[in-house]
């Protein structure tokens, strides 16, 4: 049986989905996006199988990246803490292994639960080559300004890691907790996923002039992304929850609405992320 990929999904013939039609719609969508002037870095991708059924392996992610001209992707586990110590040991190891299997394509971040063996998990991940930390306050049920979370962010900062936070669907009010976190963890570098969707205006008000804060575009709202300074915006797709075609469309539309020039678009699509990660193009 022949299958093809469209909008990030494998589509078998004979079902409710018309693979050819969907591939054509995806092609038209992407053709409407101007070419990216520079390397492309997707800062938000999950590998593994989430408790909610979403799943993605490294081979499929790299195929998506190739299809959409994405050079590198920052990857971390799905919500897959494991049955033992629930410290993401196996899923972090899988992401770190994927980075070794795809050198230069996957930048591994580790994921921890601040309340469950986080320090040990981060130490193991660092020894295996992790480059940053992903935290999900909703899935792991903690507040960004809790003492456990602050300790994780301080630990990551000591290691020189940026910390990517889920800051979108399901999140409680974000502004005050992130303001408190930024004050409690001097020198931290924070990426707010989904451009802090749902609380973007309030977060922008507290983050402006306070700490080193970045916003990723994954599954974000166009109005939120377009109001941000492009020097602080990072391209992301949130595979497998999102996909690359609409992620690229979002940045192209934000650039048009906000009047970003080519250099600013290049920064959003990859240059800003490379600088944040300390990498050369």
């Amino acid at each position: 049986m022949s299958v093809r990929r469209a909008f990030g999904e494998w589509i078998a013939p004979g079902g409710a989905l018309d693979a050819e039609r969907l591939a054509e719609l995806e092609r038209l969508l992407v053709e409407g996006c101007p070419p990216t002037p520079g390397p492309v870095v997707d800062v938000h991708a999950h590998l593994g199988r989430d408790a909610d059924g979403h799943a993605l392996d490294a081979a499929d992610l790299v195929a998506d990246m190739d299809a959409h001209g994405v050079d590198r992707a920052v990857c971390f586990p799905a919500n897959e803490p494991g049955d033992g110590d629930a410290a993401f040991a196996a899923s972090n190891a899988a992401v770190l292994g994927a980075a070794q299997d795809h050198p230069g394509r996957i930048v591994p971040f580790c994921r921890v639960d601040p309340a469950r063996g986080a320090a040990e998990a981060m130490e193991r991940a660092a020894a295996a080559g992790a480059r940053g930390l992903k935290l999900h306050p909703v899935a792991q049920g903690f507040a960004p300004d809790s003492s456990e979370c602050v300790a994780c962010v301080r630990d990551a900062t000591r290691r020189g890691w940026p910390v990517l936070f889920h800051a979108g669907y399901g999140a409680r009010a974000l502004a005050a907790p992130f303001a408190a976190l930024l004050d409690a963890a001097p020198g931290c570098r924070i990426i707010l996923a989904h451009a802090a969707r749902g609380d973007a205006r309030a977060v922008w008000d507290v983050a402006r002039g306070r700490g080193d804060v970045w916003w990723d575009t994954s599954l974000a709202s166009l109005a939120d992304v377009a109001m941000l300074p492009p020097s602080r915006v990072l391209f992301g797709a949130d595979r497998p929850y999102g996909e690359h075609a609409t992620a690229r469309q979002l940045v192209a539309l934000a650039a048009a609405v906000a009047g970003w020039d080519d250099a600013q678009v290049a920064g959003v699509m990859g240059g800003n992320a490379l600088a944040l990660l300390g990498e050369t193009p």
Partner: peptide, 15 residues
């Protein structure tokens, strides 16, 4: 198949 369909519908609506 239904999960894939739901994800594709989400992407089309997002676009």
């Amino acid at each position: 198949g239904a999960r894939a369909a739901r994800k594709v519908v989400q992407a089309l609506v997002r676009a």
